[in-house]
């Protein structure tokens, strides 16, 4: 949103917010005013009153069902005027931008909590991410993270321009992504078709793997969301540290060796997310580890699956080089 609209939003109720959203119930005042405002109603519904007149109407119709009814009636008429304009199709980006913002809202977050729990858990653990994590993560791959993070900080205002496959895939995980969108994405060009593949993959029954903190970052939290084929996945993490920003490497462990699987960029707030694709299904590997990019030592591990199932055991960390 532009600064203008933000200011608009913060400056209190715009005229029509009040006029269409006033409390429905009229107060039991016998006669709120002998001076009805019906002569102001046409100017009011057309948005053509002076501020003081507008306030007068808005106040009056809270108490006067008669004038409120006139306002509602004339709003229907001007609503027809609004529909008379030439039709123009909104760009698809606008829908993505809206639902990105929706998925970030507190309301979506609360609704998503229930949805997330319906996903098949692959690891048995009591650990869960903080409720705010799905919206707080800085989403993107190593290459896409910077502009997307910038878009997040600016309130998603120009978000559509930064729409990326990993970001959109991540939005799926909030549980509020519309299903018509999935279909519509099929008709979009470019990277959207790749997203569609991701979406189908996850929609068909993904799984979640909770990660445990390693020695390098005892307070870290994170999880993997895996697609149905267990090869495409998303990593979300929160290192719970404001001094851990930087690039981290994703490794999978195969036959006791570390195999690179991608990178994730952690922002100044300690959160990050990245998409990755594995050569083999995740369950073919022994475990996954997240490490600072310049380190492979076991004492530097910030997150791992090794303490909780999926081929990993607590002792494995010590056994590895």
């Amino acid at each position: 949103m532009s600064d203008n609209l933000d200011q608009f939003h913060q400056s209190g109720d715009p005229q029509g917010e009040r006029r269409v959203r006033r409390d429905a119930q009229p107060l039991p005042i016998a006669d709120a005013a002998d001076d009805h405002v019906e002569e102001l109603v046409p100017g009011y519904v057309l948005g053509a009153l002076e501020p003081n007149e507008q306030q007068l109407v808005e106040f009056h119709i809270q108490f006067c069902p008669r004038c409120a009814g006139l306002v509602d009636r004339d709003l229907r008429t001007v609503g027809a005027l609004a529909l008379s304009v030439p039709a123009a199709a909104p760009p698809f980006d606008a829908k993505i931008a809206l639902f990105s913002r929706v998925s970030q809202s507190d309301k979506a977050r609360n609704a998503a909590t229930a949805t997330m729990t319906t996903q098949k858990p692959s690891a048995t653990t009591e650990q869960t991410l903080p409720r705010s994590t799905p919206s707080a993560v800085s989403i993107g791959t190593a290459t896409a993270a910077a502009p997307v993070a910038a878009a997040q900080r600016s309130g998603w205002s120009r978000f559509g321009a930064f729409a990326s496959v990993p970001l959109l895939a991540a939005l799926m995980f909030t549980g509020v992504w519309g299903y018509n969108l999935n279909k519509e994405l099929q008709t979009q060009d470019s990277a959207m078709s790749e997203l569609q593949a991701q979406v189908s993959n996850f929609g068909a029954g993904g799984s979640t793997v909770q990660l445990s903190p390693g020695r390098g970052m005892p307070q870290a939290e994170g999880k993997l969301v895996l697609g149905a084929d267990e090869r495409a996945g998303m990593l979300q993490l929160d290192l719970n540290s404001d001094s851990a920003a930087g690039d981290y490497a994703i490794w999978v462990v195969q036959d006791g060796s570390l195999v690179p699987a991608g990178e994730v960029q952690v922002g100044a707030d300690g959160t990050g997310a990245a998409q990755f694709t594995l050569a083999q299904p995740f369950s073919d590997y022994e475990s996954i580890r997240i490490l600072p990019v310049d380190s492979t030592g076991k004492n530097a591990v910030v997150l791992t699956s090794e303490y909780q199932g999926l081929g990993g055991t607590g002792s494995e960390l010590d056994a590895l080089p």
């Binding site: 609209l5 715009p14 029509g16 006029r19 269409v20 948005g47 709003l75 609503g79 609004a82 529909l83």
Partner: peptide, 10 residues
Amino acid sequence: TWLLSITHNL
């Protein structure tokens, strides 16, 4: 009508 009213105001 409600949506268009908000649209008009903004």
